[in-house]
Nucleic acid binder design. Structure first.
Length: 572
RNA sequence: GCCCACAUAGCUCAGUUGGAUAGAGCGACUGCCUCCUAAGCAGUAGGUCACAGGUUCGAAUCCUGUUGUGGGUACCA
């Protein structure tokens, strides 16, 4: 058994590490084992005359099958009409593997070839992570590119609800994932203060205003019933007295200002900040909306029927035509959406992400269709649809409605549960699940929220480090990693090695939840290590090696928590 | 009616692009603090992966149908 002292400072140490054990070809130190295997397998298959099959290499579920396995021989059984085990033997014979990176591969049952990566590979990760620090694991995919992430986009008719929370947290985390990979990201909020909703809101405030003045005025039929409108009305009375007349635009403007301030405040409470607020009204004023209709009309895709203006989507393979301008003369939401997306495309982002609730599922294809017809390249646009949150109270489903004031605000939830709990609650679930949110358990849940499991791991590490320092033991950049042989240590290392896979996977899918799942597993690996292996002991060399291990673990945890917008506490 | 999503343990949800014996938390039960934080660890119980077919070496995952839930289907966005 050889060993050597690793030096943390120069990253070059990984490349030029001759003198410390066996010399390794440079490529294998830089390339991840999975990609390396895919390449070597591809070459082996080529030598066997199989160029059509792309080998897949995936992590194994069970450690007894090693770290990585491939199913190529199973895939080839049909073409070759031979026993997969025989094929596996043949592939293995052709495979050019570096014995220093892998143990001897094995072939198991149906015909899998299993690869076990030598522990040295994992140990080398530690200095790399410590050197990288808070930049460790950052991707470069988006370097030099811009991205726009549009989310929340609720019209300012009332406070944000728990339902909006899902989109708010999701969008912010998606934006952070992009930033982690090098994108320059604009978080954007799109709203409409000129439409029917806002008009009714103004009328509702107006009614409340006159009610405050003792007049018997009814709320409009579809009016907003929230208590917050009474407050706005009361403020108007104290600021403006009794002079306001019916139809004054101040009712709507006052409501919008107050409500928007409240929305921004609720978002800030979750650590969410938009850089750009786009107002639909601008697209009317600039003529962009008229231009949209005119451009489509030029392509003979617009017609009038029953006093409405229609978009002839059936001519483009859709099942029915869509109304763009209602018989009342007001556009439907589709039309400004088209103009808005045209604008976003013209702003030349490399990536445009739209986060919509399930209620927009039918809309965006029409928007994309229109833009394609106008010869825009819509490939930068990625639409993420999330399902709704179902609120449950006393075992009953609660239908939320801003208008009927039947909702729980995001702010209330944040107050009782806390920012991290709320964020994690929404992040840990896939966006495509219809998730149930039990209001009765909201507070209770906050104490058992799995986010604490992650944060606890971080706090525990911090505590060990503090404990060491109190005994005069501090981390040094000289440590012997070969002392890390305990299964708990190796499992923890292996889990850390998956961090970049997790962030890359999150980037591809734009699903923050994969990172949350990863961090859960990492925390588990740490907690198990913690129980089995004491860090600060009389054995100075082992203590240093384990300190290095937990320093690295803390960095990965903190980086992952940071991407998700969660705090990494030093104490709990 | 038609279109789009979804259906996994009592509850809330994972499941790495079709892999090997389907996992975690909560709830229930049993152990573990003389020792760096027990917000932890180890274990028991709990499953017809909605149902029925199909595709193939192999299906919770892909296809078809059925049932159920959510959403949409100009005049709420």
């Amino acid at each position: 058994m050889w060993w050597c002292i690793f030096s943390v400072i120069p990253p070059a140490a990984f490349i030029n590490w001759s003198g410390c054990g066996p010399m390794l070809p440079r490529v294998q130190l830089k390339m991840n084992p999975k990609k390396f295997l895919v390449r070597q397998l591809t070459e082996a298959l080529a030598r066997l005359g199989q160029t059509d099959t792309i080998p897949e290499v995936s992590p194994t579920r069970d450690p007894k099958f090693g770290d990585l396995s491939t199913n190529v021989s199973l895939k080839l059984t049909r073409a070759l009409k031979r026993n997969p085990l025989e094929i596996a033997e043949q592939i293995l014979a052709e495979l050019d593997l570096d014995v220093d990176l892998f143990e001897q591969p094995t072939i198991t049952k149906p015909g899998f070839i299993n690869f076990t990566i030598r522990n040295d590979y994992y140990r080398r990760l530690i200095p790399e992570i410590i050197t990288g620090g808070d930049a460790y694991g950052r991707g470069q995919t988006g370097n030099g590119q811009t991205a726009n992430v549009e989310f929340v986009s609720a019209n300012p008719t009332g406070p944000l609800t728990v339902g909006h929370g899902r989109q708010a947290v999701l969008g912010d985390a998606v934006a952070s994932i992009l930033e982690w990979h090098g994108y320059e990201v604009i978080r954007e909020y799109y709203y409409n203060d000129a439409g029917r909703q806002m008009r009714i809101l103004g009328q509702s405030v107006e009614a409340r205003y006159f009610q405050e003045l003792g007049q018997a005025v009814e709320l409009p039929e579809d009016g907003y019933r929230g208590e917050y409108l009474r407050e706005i009305a009361r403020n108007l009375v104290s600021e403006q007295g009794e002079k306001l007349k019916a139809g004054d635009p101040i009712f709507r403007k006052a409501a919008e200002a107050v409500i928007f301030a409240d929305i921004k405040n609720s978002l800030a409470g979750l650590g969410i900040h938009h850089q750009v607020f786009s107002n639909e009204k601008n697209y009317y004023d600039s003529g962009a909306i008229d231009r949209m209709v005119a451009d489509l009309r030029e392509r003979d895709l617009i017609y009038e029927k029953e006093a409405a203006t229609w978009f002839k989507t059936t001519a483009l393979g859709k099942d029915q035509d869509r109304v763009l301008i209602k018989s009342s003369g007001e556009p439907t939401y589709r039309l400004p959406d088209m103009a808005y997306h045209r604008d976003k495309l013209e702003r030349n982002f490399d990536l445009i992400v739209d986060i919509f609730g399930a209620d927009h599922q039918a809309t965006y294809p029409d928007v994309l269709t229109a833009l394609k017809i106008l010869e825009y390249d819509v490939s930068p646009i990625r639409v993420l649809i999330h399902q709704f949150v179902t609120l449950v109270r006393s075992g009953q489903k609660v239908k939320m409605s801003t208008r009927k004031a039947n909702f729980v605000t995001l702010e209330e939830l944040t107050e009782i549960a806390g920012k991290d709990v709320v964020r994690y609650f929404f992040i840990m679930r896939g966006m495509n699940t219809h998730l149930n949110f039990d209001l009765d358990l909201a507070e209770d849940e906050s104490e058992k929220n799995p986010v604490y499991y992650l944060q606890y791991a971080h706090a525990r590490i911090s505590n060990i480090i503090r404990h060491g320092e109190s005994l005069g033991i501090s981390f040094k950049d000289q440590y012997d990693l070969t002392l890390l042989t305990h299964p708990g240590e190796i499992q923890l290392l292996k889990q850390m090695a998956r961090f970049t896979d997790a962030t890359e996977s999150a980037l591809e899918s734009l699903e923050p939840q994969v990172l949350a799942t990863y961090l859960q597993d990492l925390a588990t690996a740490f907690h198990k290590f913690y129980v089995d292996c004491r860090v600060i002991t009389a054995d100075q060399r082992l203590t240093q090696a384990r300190l290095a291990l937990i320093y690295a673990t803390r960095i990965v945890l903190a980086n992952g928590l940071g991407i998700l917008g969660l705090t990494a506490p030093e104490k709990m």
